[in-house]
């Protein structure tokens, strides 16, 4: 569950910007990133908010833009129109280095209900874009694109369609440094297997990759086993298997890959490792973040290891 909005992004403070804030004093937009949102009272259409945002002083020098709850309390609204607005505004938003599409907390709309769309036009409209983050996997298409400047690609979901993995594998992001995918659960749209991840583990695919995060997965043990020995690991500084249902099976797989000790960080926070396994991993990998250990839920004979963010 995501309960809080970003307060800063890309090193800049975030200013929430709904219809109400439009009438208030706003900070210098060249050093602030706005989160555009429509409140639950649906104060007006997003298109109007967006066009009034574009009229603000300094918007042409604003470094990034976060799209929040773009449809108020209408949980089923697709992001298609929002993507169009962004694309059409590219000349006005000429300093944009980052776009976060969907900083929407669970109290506004559940991550599994956010209805994304084809966001590939953003790549063509913003050739200087360095950071793209998307929350919500439903309906999401990244397209098969070539983008030379993109450094960070994040897709947060409660269940990622394998077609998104195929899109990434078929695209070219030669300067990508940070790839973060929340794989999720098949209850909410995950329909892949570790085989779908294999193309992403090829060093030639991402020659400059430094952070690989394959997290929030209900097959976290298999993901770990597939990645721990992959050749791409040698070029990484951070490997992130957090927020999933990692248990001792995955722990054993980690221990068989001594090269992981060379990482700057091995992020395993939110995990289901036993205290014994935790101790062995801490011994082998002093770089490991083992915080936020979870206890499985037991109902009758059933044991549940829930991932951090699903519904």
């Amino acid at each position: 569950m995501i309960s809080e909005h970003l307060e800063s992004w890309l090193g800049f403070p975030v200013q929430p910007l709904g219809f109400e804030e439009l009438n208030e004093d706003l900070p210098d937009l060249s050093r602030t990133i706005c989160r555009l949102y429509i409140g639950w009272e649906s104060e007006g259409p997003f298109t109007e908010l967006f066009s009034r945002f574009l009229e603000l002083k300094g918007v042409d020098s604003t470094p990034g833009l976060i799209i929040g709850a773009y449809a108020g309390d209408d949980s089923g609204a697709e992001s298609t129109e929002t993507v169009e607005l962004l694309v059409n505004a590219h000349t006005r938003l000429r300093s944009l280095r980052g776009i976060f599409l969907g900083d929407i907390i669970s109290e506004e709309n559940e991550i599994s209900w956010i209805q994304q769309s084809d966001v590939s036009p953003l790549f063509a409209a913003y050739p200087q874009l360095e950071n793209l983050a998307v929350r919500g996997g439903n309906g999401l298409t990244l397209g098969r694109v070539v983008h030379d400047k993109l450094k960070s690609l994040v897709v947060q979901s409660g269940g990622l369609p394998r077609s998104v993995l195929a899109d990434i594998a078929a695209s070219r992001f030669p300067n990508l440094e940070h790839l973060e995918l929340w794989l999720g659960t098949d209850n909410y749209g995950w329909d892949g297997t570790v085989a779908d991840l294999q193309p992403l583990l090829d060093p030639q695919q991402f020659p400059r990759l430094r952070t690989l995060a394959l997290r929030n997965s209900e097959i976290q043990n298999e993901v770990v086993a597939a990645v721990a020995h992959a050749p791409i690991v040698t070029q990484l500084e951070t490997l992130d298997f957090s927020m999933g249902n990692l248990s001792d099976v995955g722990g054993e797989a980690l221990l068989k890959s001594p090269q992981l000790s060379r990482l700057k960080k091995l992020d395993l926070h939110y995990h289901y490792l036993s205290p014994e396994m935790e101790a062995r991993i801490r011994q082998a990998f002093p770089n490991a973040d083992l915080s936020d250990r979870q206890e499985p839920d037991k109902y009758g004979d059933e044991v549940y290891r829930n991932i951090a963010v699903s519904e």
Binding site: E4, I105, E107
Partner: peptide, 13 residues
């Protein structure tokens, strides 16, 4: 009552 969205803190609502 209408469901007014609540603020989050410490990872909780």
């Amino acid at each position: 009552e209408e469901w007014v969205p609540k603020a989050g803190l410490l990872g909780r609502t």
